[in-house]
Design a protein around this nucleic acid. Structure first.
Length: 663
RNA sequence: GAACCAGUAGCUCAGCCCGGAUAGAGCAUCUGCCUUCUAAGCAGAGGGUCGCAGGUUCGAGUCCUGCCUGGUUCACCA
């Protein structure tokens, strides 16, 4: 509703500026004044015009105010300060429109392809992966169609690097460090699954051990490195026993990752795997295209002699005939393709720019509402077509800024400027451990480590908080709290509440920081349920629901109860301001969504959810709804609780957080 | 050496894109409030040279330049 009103005002201002001053202002600024006495919407536009029109800002604002007064929904327009234009809304009329859930739509045409999670399938997921998946999943929720908005067609992918060196490492661990035969590996993994033990946890330890083992014996070091490389090559080639073992491991670990993410309400549409990108020859098609378009060229001199290379983004022009020493190698002198090369091929596919190439598709998992497909060589006859995206969003941490920039640059250089412009690297700073947290987990830190601001999570060292461990701890903490507060509730209900609270706490924790803030993880902060947390917001929604329940009024009746009531008196004076603040906050959902989508910044939504909850708690303490003696005012208070509940639940929904029945 | 990110209250962070009204929040500390729709809450207090120095501007936490500090990245590895 706030968005609708702002849009109407902007449109009117543009017309007035054109008619009256024969001028236009690009992006007329509007903002919310610092307090309600000053109105709901303000614009400093007169300041900008002052210089251009050689006129005092206050005089311009006064003239504009006259033109804007009388607009539907506007009560008064005032000029304040040196020339602020303050618009005060007709609160009673606006409240009725809020109750009717009038709001601007969000959405558009063109497939949005969001890729996130993308954990190497060789070990358990950890806190860093949780930040990635929660960011990506939340962003997809902001984009896609739901009951509130028409949204964008949205597909969620989770890229699986099943033929990379990390998988090779655990295969080396199984076959050489442990000395198992492929058959014994089959039995081992089968046994783990049958006993309900976690394959990903087993691999976590093994991966750390192999990493140590490579360097543990100087005499063997070279031989072991060679073993690692040979294993990797067998993996990439495929069709051999080593590759079969690798696939077994990668698939078992992938299953575990999907289960972990499903605990948090995170689901995927498609799992493209590197093995298919290799074996379906995406790279060959991409290479052809890159050569045709003159992006890829053979270096004939200098340190990269014999390699096929590409200019780096922003590289300085080199003298004709001189080798570009700064160029990015795409094909090595031995003829093998680098990671960036494969990534370029994959991204051409995403935009539907790789002629004749597509994956085979088969169903890997069935969620309650949709299947999750996985890439395969020869898939099922009937399958969806992903790729062909109008815009893509890659959720990858900031350490990958450079490789991502290379991929974008290659698209641009090939002339696919539209694709390059619709390629968004949703980058974020990684999650590390505070020194205290690392010590609590029993990791041995060097003196040098202790001087650092944080300890980086490291799969090689086995340093990190595993995702499932964290979720388990959160559920246990929430369960203890629920048990203490509601011993009368059924066990099943308490369990359900504890899970929702735990997930709310975790998702909110990962979302409240903006993307470029490095999170130094500490259990004390993550396990907090007070203050700026998910449970605080959930609690507010539960309280709002309780009011309606105890009043014996349905949501619908509470909302419509204010029709025919003269609301104006209740929205005036100090008490009215504080009540109105709740309504105004609740009306800003669309504005917030649009900001968050434009900036690819879910934290904006999380922060708004918290503000909304704070506003509700203010209302809750200042107004006792059930004891209200004035029947007309009571109707308004009930509607206030209903609006608060509707918007809190809605916004939490965007964040992937559910509201428990009680807490 | 270069590129990018960060530096705001004791701690953790918003605000910076697009300059504007008294720089906000949570945690921690202190003081109050549970016989009321749930205290996972509310009210209040203390706490700030917005890293430093210049510049632009009527106006700078926000824009520009330089510097300092911390972090990340920059292989024919993957």
């Amino acid at each position: 509703m706030y968005r609708t009103m702002t849009q109407a005002l902007l449109a009117r201002m543009e017309t007035v500026l054109k008619d009256k001053y024969d001028t236009t202002v690009a992006n007329i600024a509007t903002e919310q004044p610092p307090n309600l006495q000053l109105g709901e919407i303000a614009s400093p536009v007169a300041f900008e015009l002052a210089k251009r029109l050689r006129k005092a800002p206050r005089a311009i604002a006064t003239e504009l105010a006259e033109e804007l007064a009388g607009m539907p929904g506007v009560a008064v327009v005032e000029v304040a300060g040196a020339g602020y234009l303050n618009i005060k809304l007709d609160r009673a009329a606006t409240a009725l429109r809020i109750v009717a859930d009038e709001h601007a739509d969000v959405g558009g045409e063109g497939l949005r392809l969001v890729e996130h999670t993308s954990i190497n399938p060789n070990k358990a997921a950890h806190v860093g992966h949780l930040r990635n998946a929660i960011l990506g999943d939340t962003f997809a929720r902001l984009l896609r169609k739901d009951a509130y908005k028409s949204g964008y067609p949205t597909v969620v992918q989770n890229y699986i690097d099943n033929t990379g060196v990390q998988v090779a490492d655990v295969v080396v661990g199984l076959l050489h460090l442990e000395g198992k035969t492929p058959v014994q590996v089959d039995e081992l993994i089968g046994g783990l699954i049958a006993r309900g033990e976690r394959v990903d946890y087993f691999m976590w330890d093994l991966y750390a051990r192999v990493s140590q083992w490579y360097d543990s014996d100087p005499a063997e070091k070279e031989a072991r490195k060679k073993l690692r490389l040979d294993t990797l090559h067998e993996l990439e080639t495929g069709g051999n026993e080593v590759a079969r073992v690798a696939d077994l491991v990668a698939t078992a670990v992938l299953e575990r990752h999907l289960e972990t993410m499903e605990r948090l309400g995170i689901e995927y549409d498609f799992l493209p795997r590197e093995s298919e990108i290799l074996h379906l020859h995406f790279w060959q098609a991409a290479r052809q295209l890159m050569m045709e378009r003159g992006v890829l060229y053979l270096e004939t001199a200098g340190k990269n002699k014999g390699c096929w290379v590409m200019r780096r983004p922003g590289a300085e022009a080199v003298t004709e005939g001189e080798p570009d020493e700064d160029a990015k190698v795409i094909v090595r002198s031995n003829g093998t393709v680098t990671y960036v090369g494969k990534d370029i091929a994959y991204h051409l596919w995403k935009f539907g720019l790789l002629p004749g190439c597509d994956f085979g598709y088969t169903i890997f998992r069935e969620y309650a509402t949709h299947p999750c497909w996985i890439s395969t060589m020869h898939g099922e006859e009937k399958h969806p077509h992903y790729g062909q995206a109008a815009a893509i969003y890659n959720v990858i941490d900031s350490r990958q800024n450079d490789p991502q920039a290379n991929v974008v640059e290659s698209l641009r250089a090939m002339g696919f400027t539209d694709a390059a412009e619709h390629y968004t690297h949703v980058n974020y700073e990684f999650v590390a451990l505070t020194i205290r947290c690392a010590e609590d987990l029993g990791y041995v830190l060097s003196d040098e480590d202790k001087l650092r601001p944080y300890i980086e999570v490291s799969g090689r060292k086995g340093f990190g908080v595993k995702a499932d461990d964290l979720i388990d701890r959160l559920i246990a903490a929430a369960k203890a709290e629920v048990d203490a507060r509601h011993p009368e509730d059924a066990e099943e209900l308490r369990r359900d509440a504890a899970e929702k609270i735990a997930i709310g706490a975790l998702r909110f924790f990962m979302l409240k920081f903006t993307r470029n803030t490095l999170i130094a993880f500490d259990f004390r902060d993550a396990l907090s349920f007070e203050g700026e947390t998910g449970p605080y917001v959930q609690y507010s929604a539960v309280r709002a629901a309780n009011i309606l329940r105890k009043a014996g009024v349905s949501m619908k009746n509470a909302l419509h109860g204010i029709h025919g009531v003269d609301l104006a008196p209740y929205f005036s004076a100090d008490a009215g301001d504080s009540l109105w603040a709740m309504w105004l906050a609740a009306s800003r959902v669309t504005t917030v969504l649009e900001q968050a989508i434009a900036a690819a910044e879910p934290a904006i939504v999380a922060r708004y959810a918290f503000q909304l909850a704070q506003e509700f708690n203010n209302f809750y303490h200042r107004n006792h709804v059930l004891n209200e003696q004035d029947e007309a005012r009571k109707k308004l208070l009930l509607a206030t609780a209903a609006v608060a509940h509707r918007e809190l639940e809605r916004v939490l929904g965007f964040l992937g957080i559910a509201v428990p029945v009680s807490m």
